[in-house]
């Protein structure tokens, strides 16, 4: 059973069709990279999958459990609140601009949700939080505040915050786009380490070489549809569609 299954997803904003019939599956342990031009609907797709945006129609299932489904009359329905609460814990999302809680210290950012959402004990949450901080190379920043950290460090904290809830799948929406070029490397390295540990991830990125290195599967989106998908070798090195070719060539010119 795929960890995430999206079928025939559609989403419009005031009549503007941003997602037009997208279907995809993510298997346990898979790393999927989503690439595509600006405005192609990549963020919207992640936001629909993480319940930040309501879909118009289509199905979304996590481990076979429906978040959104189509009933017998063909109506699109969301699962009841208590099911959504449970399924919510299956995924995490790392934002482009981190969205850390500025009034909480680094460690509090990480342990607050485990304590207050998952009802873990403070000791247990602290142990998990400190372990994650060490893995992110930030063991000495435990008591710092987000405003005292570089962008790259903040993004690592936000990854640790997402991981602390032990999600089955982690979404990234352009995790390096808000960073200075010299700081992107540290984030990409963290994601590569996670991939090596078989963390299931869906990553929207503009870093083509990173996508090629880290992903098992690449999806090229344009105009709200999946234009082409396959292995990195297929999509990046031997694109079949003209739109993919045009996008990639534009990319390498820059």
């Amino acid at each position: 059973m795929p960890l995430l299954k999206i079928s025939n997803l559609q989403k419009n904003f005031d009549g503007l069709e941003v997602i037009k019939d997208i279907s995809l599956e993510v298997e346990q342990g898979q790393v999927v990279a989503i690439i595509g031009p600006s405005g192609s609907g990549k963020s919207t797709l992640l936001r629909c999958a993480t319940l930040l945006e309501k879909v118009d129609s289509g199905d979304i299932l996590y481990m076979g459990e429906p978040v959104v489904y189509t009933d017998k009359q063909g109506k699109t329905c969301y699962a009841p609140h208590k099911d959504l609460k449970r399924i919510q814990s299956y995924f995490g999302l790392v934002f482009q601009n981190f969205n850390l809680f500025p009034h909480y210290s680094v460690i509090k950012n990480i342990i607050d949700a485990p304590i207050h959402v998952q009802k873990k004990s403070k000791e247990e949450a602290l142990a998990i939080g400190r372990d994650l901080l060490a893995r992110m190379g930030l063991a000495d920043k435990e008591n710092a505040y987000p405003c005292q950290l570089s962008g790259g460090q903040q993004q690592r904290v936000s990854i640790a915050r997402a991981l602390a809830l032990n999600p089955k799948i982690l979404f990234f929406d352009e995790p390096t786009s808000a960073l200075d070029p010299e700081l992107t490397g540290e984030i990409l390295r963290v994601i590569k380490d996670l991939a090596a540990e078989h963390m299931t991830m869906v990553i929207v990125t503009h870093e083509m070489s990173f996508a090629r290195d880290v992903a098992d599967h690449i999806i090229f989106m344009d105009g709200g549809v999946i234009v082409e998908e396959g292995t990195p070798n297929q999509v990046i090195n031997n694109p079949q569609s003209d739109r993919t070719k045009a996008f990639l060539s534009r990319f390498y010119e820059i």
């Binding site: 993480t50 930040l52 919510q88 999302l93 934002f95 969205n99 949700a113 959402v117 998952q118």
Partner: peptide, 17 residues
């Protein structure tokens, strides 16, 4: 910023929390 609400929502906080 709306991002604070969204981050909290994805982390599973209730509206009151």
């Amino acid at each position: 910023p709306i991002g604070q609400y969204e981050a909290a929502k994805v982390l599973g906080y209730t509206k009151t929390q």
